[in-house]
């Protein structure tokens, strides 16, 4: 609620363009927090809570990938690998070695960031098709590793025995607590992304998307910047993997395969490329679709494929952005 109070204070001070934006952001965050609180406190149905928790986890994935695809303009077709690395790292450390899950969260983030660095250093020099192929191959290798290194990962039958999260007296066994944990993290991630985008780094990032050669020429170290954002999105993926692992308590390689990477890209294409809220929208839609449509699983691939093709053919700036642009144009015409 601090946000609302803050924005009124600001409003009294002055009303220049920049501050208007700030006020808008605060209101958005306040509304977001209210919605989370209402949904979390008043939803009794555990199934609904579970779905909403999954939406939160997927939003984290979409947020991270959106920074890379939507803002930096770089493709990754193997992002599920970082999701899996987060999940497996915490599973192995806390499940097999009995380390505190919170400590293993740090390790999971560390491992993902390190791998992102090693993989990104040469790959992000590539562009377009080669980056796509490189990340796709990377995702495949990681998935094969999950499957074949069975003495550690449990192989294709999966990993059992992931401990439930606890913090002091609070157990995250209950659906409601976990819901708030996940959405708290999502809120934190949204704030982080927005801060990054509004900063010097974010401007440089968007400038790469608009025109890489000019951004090079004004002195942006584009390769380093892409690498940083790749590492950031990998760390969000790892956090999502951590939350996923301690939520479902059982993980297997299928949850982190190529299809999951494609699903992440689809979320970004639907929602992202416009704003962080777009990522939320994309994640919600793709999480809800299979739940709402009976027998969707059969047609899941066809639907995702069609979404990707149609949106990219007609609205290469992304679905949400595309609609916003159309709306803007219509409004301008009316004026």
């Amino acid at each position: 609620m601090y946000a609302l109070a803050d924005c009124f204070r600001l409003k009294r001070q002055n009303g220049s363009d920049m501050d208007d934006n700030k006020i808008k952001n605060r209101i958005e965050h306040a509304v977001f927090i209210c919605i989370i609180l209402v949904l979390g406190l008043f939803t009794q149905n555990t199934y609904y809570l579970q779905i909403m928790t999954f939406i939160g986890i997927n939003t984290l994935l979409a947020l991270g990938l959106n920074m890379l695809i939507g803002y930096a303009g770089q493709i990754s077709l193997g992002h599920a690998a970082f999701y899996g690395i987060g999940a497996y790292t915490t599973a192995i450390l806390s499940g097999t070695f009995g380390i505190s899950p919170w400590l293993s969260l740090l390790c999971a983030i560390g491992v993902a960031v390190l791998i992102a660095f090693v993989v990104g250093l040469p790959t992000l020099r590539l562009s377009g098709y080669y980056l796509g192929m490189g990340t796709l191959g990377f995702g495949m290798i990681v998935n094969i590793l999950f499957r074949e290194w069975s003495s550690v990962t449990g192989g294709s039958s999966g990993f059992v025995g992931i401990p439930v999260l606890e913090a002091g007296k609070v157990s995250f066994m209950s659906g409601q607590n976990y819901f708030f944990l996940v959405w708290g993290v999502v809120l934190g991630a949204i704030l982080m992304c927005r801060r990054i985008l509004a900063s010097r780094m974010g401007r440089a990032l968007r400038s790469i998307h608009d025109g890489e050669k000019a951004s090079l020429a004004v002195g942006v170290n584009t390769h380093y910047l892409k690498l940083q954002i790749f590492m950031f999105s990998a760390s969000l993926g790892a956090v999502a993997g951590f939350l996923y692992a301690h939520f479902v308590l059982f993980i297997s390689p299928e949850s982190f395969g190529f299809m999951v990477s494609v699903k992440m890209v689809t979320m970004v294409v639907i929602g992202g490329m416009a704003s962080v809220w777009g990522a939320l929208l994309g994640a919600s839609l793709l999480t809800l679709l299979p739940e709402v449509l009976h027998g969707f699983a059969e047609y899941e691939m066809i639907v995702f494929g069609l979404i990707l093709m149609v949106v990219m053919i007609f609205m290469p700036q992304g679905l949400t952005r595309g609609f916003l642009d159309m709306y803007e144009k219509a409004r301008k015409k009316r004026q």
Partner: peptide
């Protein structure tokens, strides 16, 4: 495709691949 840049074509052809597979 309105904007035939590599990244767009990558996503389109990946979409086609999933579509055909489905």
């Amino acid at each position: 495709a309105r904007n035939p840049q590599p990244i767009v074509l990558v996503i389109i052809t990946v979409g086609a691949s999933i579509f055909l597979r489905g």
